[in-house]
Design a protein around this nucleic acid. Structure first.
Lengths: 214, 214
DNA sequence: GTCTATAGTGTGATAGAC
DNA sequence: GTCTATCACACTATAGAC
């Protein structure tokens, strides 16, 4: 919970003419940031469904109407949080890129992906499981597909090294990546829904990776 | 939690000896059936979120209050529809059981599963994607796990035939089934969320099956 | 058993005063 | 920019008349 009160922000100060504009802009950005901070916290803990405009307003100590000066709608906030989430995920992927062996790299990326989903279940839901129901345009985030293209690259290397002989020769590496992603998503999604009570997600993951990459 | 207590039955009335009682029961069952019919239709077309008690009541031409004489809550209706869905899925699996080759059988079952998800997206959502958010006890449906045990059986046969040598020898067939299920769920879930815009689900499926069973 | 009526609570979003 | 007040809805569930 952020302890910053609105009173900390200088609001009705007669601003000197020069910097007035950027100062106002700074305040705007600060408030927008605070809205996102609180939204992120609520979503993380209780999920996007628990994020109502009223509650959000109360948490940042403004009226609900004030929110609409910074976001056109609730879906707009969801979109912003999704973009953030994709950036986080991409950042988590980056360190794995230096792994030389493509199979080991794929395994590492897969583990990162699943760990992200399990560590931030509600964010993951927002990003990948409620996407179509919200009606906003989250799908356009090419940024989020960076992970997919890293996996594609690894499959290209595998194919070049002749290590995908189990699959039909005309199979595209991009399709392999897509299929592996579907597997990863399935593992996370089942875990989040509590349906796969038997086995821990990490074990399912290792087994699936063996099936794909052995 | 017993819904109907014995005390609710009209014992002050000397129950007419003949068919009165079962006739009343028949009417009760008929109305309950109609409620489920309409609910199923609405969910199929527009999803469980679109099923409100008001709307349901209007559709069956009763008052909202009447619904609560047959279902304790909206979640109760969801539960009933889930049980139905699991029965449908199990029935769709049955014909595949006669396929002799375990790998071919697995492929056939996998296709049935994915086809079910794509053909009845909203029912699938209700069964496997909103499960935890509803708070009812759908997970207890052992009936629904019949599919999983069929897949386990197939993996047992594969292992016995020495056709799983790519996986570590201590791997349990039940775990293989669980992992394959996760893959299937991932394929369906991504397709339903419109995230995997590139590739048709059927192709991802075949590719994944090759990876698993080649 | 079924109705009408309504309690009680939520929601997203907006108008208009200051 | 921010507020108050409110619109215009939705919802589940129940009370009490018949």
């Amino acid at each position: 919970m952020s302890t910053i009160s609105r009173m900390d922000l200088p609001r009705h100060i007669s601003t000197p003419p020069g910097k007035a504009r950027e100062l106002r802009q700074e305040q705007r950005d600060a408030l927008r940031g605070r809205i996102l901070d609180v939204s992120r916290a609520i979503v993380k803990r209780e999920g996007f469904a628990a994020l109502s405009m009223r509650r959000l307003a109360q948490a940042i100590d403004y009226s609900p109407a004030a929110l609409y000066l910074h976001f056109r709608s609730r879906a707009d906030i969801a979109y912003a949080l999704c973009v953030e989430g994709h950036a986080t995920l991409r950042a988590a992927f980056a360190p794995q890129a230096s792994i030389a062996d493509p199979a080991a790299r794929l395994r590492a990326m897969a583990r990162v992906y699943v760990e992200f989903g399990l560590a931030e279940p509600e964010t993951y839901r927002l990003m990948f499981m409620d996407a179509d129901r919200r009606g906003d345009g989250t799908h356009g985030t090419d940024d989020g597909m960076a992970a997919l293209s890293s996996m594609t690259d690894a499959f290209v290397e595998l194919r070049a090294a002749g290590r995908l002989k189990r699959l039909p020769p005309e199979t595209l590496p991009a399709d392999c990546a897509q299929a592996l992603w579907a597997t990863l998503h399935g593992i996370v999604a089942l875990a989040l829904c509590g349906v796969s009570r038997a086995m821990p997600a990490a074990e399912i993951l290792e087994l699936s990776l063996d099936a794909w990459l052995a």
